[in-house]
Design a protein around this nucleic acid. Structure first.
Lengths: 204, 204
DNA sequence: GTCTATATAGCGATAGAC
DNA sequence: GTCTATCGCTATATAGAC
């Protein structure tokens, strides 16, 4: 293959800037309240120019969510290379989710009745990425259960959904917004409550 | 005070029907995707008539959410009369939330970037109700920590938010929608993961 | 208070010049 | 491929008759 031409590279840079803008608006306002006019204004180009790159608002949002999933996948690949237990890898995933959320870099996954949900379910790239990621996580979950680090009686899909749900949990952003606790405390409390719950350990 | 007149009672019945419709549409589609036309159609009256009862779409949603909070408060009052520990009362609250969610009777609390959030924060009735409920729950949380049933090192506001977050957690509806597990299993798994987490109990 | 009909505004998407 | 200007639709909210 030839090296990308100058035109192609400029195109990619421009589209990356667009996806950046979409991403931050998705984080700030969510899909429904994000307007294409705002995206154009944030990128600094006219709305009509946006539509030369992406055919619809839905495609804009899908591109942003696909990029987030790609970054998640890249982080999984890093974790997979570390010589640690499956449990430690899952812990790493949770930390990554929470750090992204804390830093305001994670567009919250669409909950049940969001219009974005329908958009993503119709997007093939998103769907296949999600399947790949889920398979990797599913293997780690089963391994961690086999190692005796996760409760073995919980179905793997329950654990997987519980983990995904941390990406759209309002607790972390609300605690951050309250300004009453330092970052590390918040991350530790939420990690602990994810793995150990909030109840006191039982006596003998 | 005099007994309510026939007119007043009809008014209340009509408005109750409106709130019912709003509630089910909020559950089904969420605030942004719910249209006032749909509400009117579901109630069976003209849209203009709706606006004689409620001044805006925001007021419609707020009324529905206030009623949900009132029902929550009523359930708290029931729980407060039972001769059980604070921990058991909190467990009862969690079960109530999950049962409402499972039965499709709970409009999911608005997460960070929903327009509904701004609506509710501006609503005085909702705000004062929320404060009352939070105070009751806060007392139970502190009592349960004092009893040694909840981890004492977790700040009460973290526990409170974690509990509230169960009301907008997508895990339960997704598990229900998957159709792979019976209702009671789902409720038990989620209750257990809330209090005990998903990790296996530690060693020695 | 209920209706039909309409005003008003915002937004997704497009036309057409350059 | 970028722009300005505009279309077309939908949704909130209101006017005015009964």
């Amino acid at each position: 293959m030839n090296a990308p031409s100058v035109r192609e590279r400029m195109l990619r840079v421009r589209e990356e800037a667009i996806v950046d803008a979409v991403n931050s608006l998705l984080i700030e306002k969510g899909y429904e309240q994000m307007t294409v006019d705002e995206v154009a204004a944030l990128v600094g180009i006219a709305k009509a120019s946006l539509y030369k790159h992406f055919p619809s608002k839905e495609a804009l949002a899908a591109a942003a969510m696909v990029r987030t999933l790609q970054r998640a996948q890249a982080h999984l690949a890093e974790l997979a290379m570390r010589p640690v237990t499956a449990f430690e890898r899952l812990r790493g995933v949770l930390r990554w989710i929470m750090q992204m959320q804390y830093d305001g870099a994670m567009p919250t996954l669409p909950s049940e009745n969001s219009a974005l949900r329908g958009v993503l379910m119709a997007d093939k790239a998103y769907g296949s990425l999600l399947m790949t990621v889920s398979e990797t996580l599913g293997e780690w979950i089963q391994q961690a259960q086999h190692d005796g680090d996760l409760q073995a009686h919980l179905p793997a899909d329950v654990v997987l959904l519980t983990l995904y749900a941390r990406a759209c949990d309002p607790v972390l952003p609300l605690l951050k917004a309250s300004g009453q606790h330092p970052r590390e405390s918040i991350l530790e409390w939420l990690e602990a409550s994810f793995f150990r719950g909030i109840a006191a350990p039982r006596g003998p």
